[in-house]
Design a protein around this nucleic acid. Structure first.
Lengths: 138, 138
DNA sequence: TCCTACAATGGACATTGTCTAAGTCAAGCA
DNA sequence: TGCTTGACTTAGACAATGTCCATTGTAGGA
């Protein structure tokens, strides 16, 4: 079973069927589902799960730092379970496919003090956009 | 008057009071309004302008490349008229304030071929997050 | 000035997300 | 094992943002 469930239990998270299902749906590499997609897949495993529970659970996973919210799509938030390895995203402008990528260099270092306007900068989010091989072939 | 209106007219854009008002609202540096804010300000100048028109006009300005859509906020799209000077964004995690910034270096070059998965990468969007001086003082 | 294609209107609808009141249940404990 | 309790879940109303469409209005050319 997934490490995620272990970690959550270790943190005193009360385990319920609903939470287990949501955690199971969010498992694997290059998984970037919208809340609605998570709900759809959760319903397939546990038909009576409600939308509110999915939203609540996703929100908790995010505040626990186990899942990342990413805003590559402009419509809906997406949830990325790959929270323990810093990475950025590569998005196909046509079909919306998303890949995790690991650029070299540190973009934080590229922002000189004069461009910080007194902000305390703690984080950076990079989204590359392009066309994926499938769409390029079509 | 603004260059924007000149450019649009030069492209054969049909000029109407509504479009003029939207273009006027979107003028200046560090302007990052939501569609709703644009509508509110447009209504102040032209009370009978409708929401649909604001959305349509914003959409057209974006496809003409005169305005950028930015997704710094997770709720609503924001519109950035500073489309002719490439730049990125610095966002306050607390109050949501947004500044345009110009990092050194080219993040596109930081993505090695092995991390491109066959994509043709054409664009990169960088969002720095931190705390602004106002919020830090509070 | 008149025409006509294009733009604007307003209101219904769609999508995404949040909230609440009431019912349910996991986990600790005797 | 069987309570107890507080956290969890539910359904559905509501809110915010965005889209669509049929109708009405109008900018700009003939």
């Amino acid at each position: 079973m997934s490490d995620l469930l272990e970690r959550l239990r270790g943190r005193g998270w009360r385990m319920t069927a609903q939470r287990r299902v949501v955690a199971e749906v969010l498992d694997g590499e290059h998984v970037h589902l919208t809340a609605d997609e998570v709900h759809a897949r959760a319903v397939a495993k546990l038909p009576e799960i409600s939308r509110a529970t999915v939203y609540n659970t996703l929100g908790e996973l995010v505040s626990l730092g186990e899942v990342l919210e990413v805003a590559t799509d402009k419509r809906a938030k997406r949830y990325d379970p790959n929270a323990h390895r810093p990475h950025h995203h590569l998005v196909c402008a046509q079909c919306g496919a998303i890949r995790d990528v690991h650029p070299t260099g540190n973009p934080l270092a590229d922002l000189p003090d004069t461009e910080r306007f007194g902000f305390t900068v703690s984080d950076v989010e990079v989204t590359y956009r392009g066309v994926c091989p499938n769409c390029a072939a079509a």
